[in-house]
Amino acid sequence: MQVQVNGEAKVLTKGATVSSLLEEMALTGKRLAVEVNEDIVPRSQHVEFTLNDGDRVEVVHAIGGG
């Protein structure tokens, strides 16, 4: 199945979760926030939150700004 991660297409195996996606991207343990289809997925739900074909995932972090 295919999802959009930060605007880029990404192929994932069926049953992939937010947690497994972050692990695949070497982002486990980083301070970040995740949104799927414009809804927040709280950190406590990353492990069980299953992704579906066509999902739009945003992974964000804090950067310098005024």
Binding site: V5, A33, H61, G64, G65
Partner: peptide, 8 residues
């Protein structure tokens, strides 16, 4: 701080 996409 600003909030932006993580550079994957």
């Amino acid at each position: 701080v600003a909030v932006r996409r993580t550079n994957l």
